[in-house]
Design a protein around this nucleic acid. Sequence first.
DNA 1: CAGTGAGCGAGCTTCCGCTTGACTT
Length: 771
Amino acid sequence: MAENLVIVESPAKAKTIEKFLGKGFHVLSSFGHIRDLSKKKLGIDVDKNYLPNYEVDPAKKKQVAALQKMVNESDVVWLATDEDREGEAIAWHLAEVLNVKKKKSYRITFNEITKDAIQNAIKNPREINIALVDAQQARRILDRLVGFELSPVLWKKVKPKLSAGRVQSVAVRLIVEKEKEIKEFQSSSYFRVTAVFSGKDKNGKPFELKAELQKNFQDIEKTRKFLELCKDSSFTVTDVITKPSVKSPAPPFTTSTLQQEASRKLGFSVSQTMLLAQKLYESGHITYMRTDSVHLSNMAIAAAKNEIISEFGEEYCKTRQFQTKSKGAQEAHEAIRPTYFDRKTITGTSNEKRLYDLIRKRTMASQMADAQILKTVISVSISKSPDQMFQAHGETIQFEGFLKVYRESSDDEQESPENMMLPPLKPGQELNRETINALKKFSQQPFRFTEASLVKKLEELGIGRPSTYAPIISTIQDRGYVEKGDIQGVERLVETLVLKGSQIKEDKKKETIGFEKAKLKPTDMGKAVTEFLLAHFPEIMNYQFTASVEKEFDRIAEGKLMWQKMIDSFYKKFHPQVSVAMELKEKRVGERLLGNDPQSGLPVYVKIGRYGPFVQIGESQADEKPRFASLPKGFDMDSVTLEQAMSFLAFPREVGKIGNEPVTVNIGRFGPYIYFEKKYFSLAKTDNPLTIGLPRAKELISEKRVRDEQNIILTFTEDPEIKVLNGKYGPYISYLKGNYKIPRDKKPENLTYADVKEIIEKGPVKSKRKK
DNA sequence: CAGTGAGCGAGCTTCCGCTTGACTT
């Protein structure tokens, strides 16, 4: 019989700790929270001072029963959940549900999983901190009230199944506002001038020097004039300034920085990174992956030191402890680091290996020496344009330090100036001018968010937690507020001027600007919902809302404020706003009158419906029913024009007849298509549904028919409705819109009519595999 | 894979933050 039961949150952690504690200690895990407010109902009795009604999660019943059994068999219960607000609450729920009062029970915490830390915790037990638990209850109840009162407003005013909340609605707002910023951005252009000089150094060795003019020109005339001056100018080195500088490594990874770097360096999505990290954690390769702390245990720092010295030598090592700066950090865990630094590689998939490598290098680098860099700036004067100056920037690494293993990436994809070794020049030296190049540049519009850069922004605002970053990103996409995709760049003609010899050559170059990969863009729905929420619930939508309620949670945790009081003063203001919004008689969210049809005079609207944005002609109360057409891809509710709306309403359009049968073109849920003889034929991306004619329609029809023909393996004269087809997932039987699986032991091409009949009798695809 | 959107109005949807499985196409 185990005398001591230790309960932690994660099963992987339980395994590790059990090893450290040895005999007499049993370690089990709660798998996170075991109890929560009712899943379906509000679960809060607003009239009884916000009394919460907690229920054991049905999915956790089994685990709770197992815990109960062990509690009954143990003498002492140690509640060792995480050392943060949520962890304290989990400990409290465990104590309540498992009725540990009957036993000796203690609350213990440690924020690193080392033998010392755990034994130390056992020596310093304490009571559950009820004030901290109350702060968690306030957090939980506030989120529930906001989420479960706001969402139904959206169901009524916009469309069912939508959602709103303290975190997700602000995340969507960030994306909506970014898009607005980009739309309003006024691009300005300028000419950037660069020069290539040559010469010979003291030893007669030829060199080349690239330098940039310190001033940009606003227009092409001024640029031309300048190049004219350069034609007959002499160029002299006026200054050579060298300055030593140091670069220090970045701290080890937290969840958010790991997601950012994995996105920039490896191209992983946020959820992909977390899945891989979970694998690495479960295999014992890395420490816990949901953390906001940059703290490393002394043991880890010592291990990193060992590894750095043996791999690179003493001079490469410089240990440090970093301070966590991010807002609202609770630091229940260490930073994300390898469990064993001497494991250079691990077994696993190639992506697991790549992520492990990133984590190991980042952690190692954080304990390595600063890089010593010598920065050099060479200034070059222009004889005929004395108020201008060329400059060359050079960087030489004197000592690599941490750069030997790791260099952090940055979000702005701005091309960095060429930092190279510069030739050893002295002031006064004359240079030969080779070419001078002027290139038209455009000021950079703001970047849209990637998943990872959105997480970074949320973290800066103190919104969301490491365990929720990935789910937030999924939720706002699942709800249709935000879409991830590539942003197509626009082609621009860019003017260039080149001075070579005594000739100035002007040219125009094509350049694609503004292409962005895997960026987040708001949908019409996201924009409309954000606008609505901003109008009626400005406090919740405020970027500072979370930070301000966090301050109150802190006061609750300090015992200076009753959680019910805090919730009450919030709810007294919030709830009436909900009632007002519910009763709004105004037209539905996002609706806009585009104008009147010049032909009929009927009003034309753009609205959001159950299936997304659409245009409508006519009033719904009128005698004549209105007609509808969905907004095709690539059109925005807020920019669509009356003319465009009228063109959508022109569908379905007859393009002609084949025999007596009409051929029409229409736009459906999956894009434009041709409809002929009760069959559908998708248009190609290059086809324009507004102008497509009969010849092209015929082409599409026959192409599709050929494709279908090729997929037919067998048909039967007995019943033309039955076909054996080759599909995306292999051969199958199709009969009256139902699909049927072909048994493994039969070859599809050898099936007889009787075989097929038998398979169909057995029922459609629903493999009832017995275990 | 495919043409909806108003209107009758049952019964459903929804939050954030802890943690991992799993009945399948």
